[in-house]
């Protein structure tokens, strides 16, 4: 679905059902350099269970017009515009990795219509290795290789995955490779973000945190810092997964999201 935000064309997938803003909504926010296809194993599930699903490509990523936004705060503002444009009420936010920083900032600043937020595989901040930012700017394929190498756990590296015949890590490579420019600006925005702790304290809606047992991008210590800064988090740890939880352990992840969202933002 294409729509205009601030006079620029934006794209979001709606999970295979027409977007109906009268229904409770689930908005999915993906990590650095990724696009809407990252959430394919979750968006369709909620769309077929009476939710209005929105998986936007961030500006400058895949189908959404550029330029890419350069700070977490700017992305939060942009999300507020998306919500306003589409006139959505009763929102559940589901965020992964950098998407969690976007969510912290968005939900703490625009709490009005949010009913729940799910943080997957993230801490309060995402300091980025300067070598990685440099690679993203000058040699994106090398940066993508690093992120895939660290992002996937054991199973991912052996091309396992829940969709018969599909290599999750190869799919991730293709998605990430689609946004070499967006990747660099995303990583810089992550690195610059400092407001995580304050934003977490400002979250008053029900929230859950899903961490991965073998996450090398957002290690346990970082994840627990997020848990510590939140008021009353429901914490889950999926042991057999690396950082890319939504595609490495989609069935476990989907079940946790389902139970949490069905309870806190029920659809008819």
């Amino acid at each position: 679905m294409y729509f205009d935000v601030n006079g620029k064309q934006a794209f979001a997938t709606t999970g295979g059902k027409p977007f109906d803003n009268k229904k409770p909504a689930v908005i999915f926010l993906q990590g650095s350099g990724l696009d809407h296809t990252f959430w394919g194993l979750h968006s369709r599930f909620f769309a077929f269970r009476n939710y209005a699903v929105l998986v936007p490509d961030f500006p400058g990523h895949s189908n959404s017009e550029g330029p890419a936004l350069t700070s977490i705060e700017a992305i939060a503002d942009w999300l507020a515009k998306v919500v306003e444009t589409l006139a959505v009420d009763n929102i559940s936010v589901v965020a992964h990795s950098q998407g969690c920083l976007n969510a912290l900032e968005f939900v703490s600043r625009y709490p009005g219509k949010v009913r729940s937020v799910s943080f997957i595989a993230s801490g309060l901040a995402t300091p980025v290795n300067p070598g990685l930012i440099d690679a993203a700017e000058n040699k994106p394929e090398s940066a993508i290789a690093m992120m895939l190498s660290w992002g996937f756990g054991h199973a991912g590296h052996f091309h396992q995955g829940p969709i018969p015949g599909n290599s999750m890590i190869a799919g991730g490579r293709k998605i990430m490779g689609g946004n070499p420019d967006g990747l660099a600006s995303d990583l810089k925005a992550c690195d610059a973000y400092r407001n995580g702790k304050a934003a977490a304290a400002g979250i008053t809606v029900p929230h859950q945190v899903i961490l991965a047992g073998t996450d090398r991008m957002a290690p346990r210590k970082a994840g627990m810092a997020l848990v510590g800064a939140l008021a009353n988090p429901e914490l889950h740890i999926i042991q057999e997964s690396g950082h890319m939880v939504p595609i490495e352990a989609p069935n476990e992840c989907r079940l946790l999201l389902k139970n949490f969202i069905f309870a806190n933002n029920p659809a008819s």
Binding site: D35, S62, G131, L132, E141, S142, I144, A145, M146, L148, S149, W150, H157, R173, K174, G177, G178, N179, P180
Partner: peptide
């Protein structure tokens, strides 16, 4: 999407 041709080479700081 952009083509990701030739991105499969293993790179320093990454292991496949």
């Amino acid at each position: 999407m952009h083509s990701t041709r030739r991105s499969n080479r293993s790179e320093a700081m990454s292991h496949f």
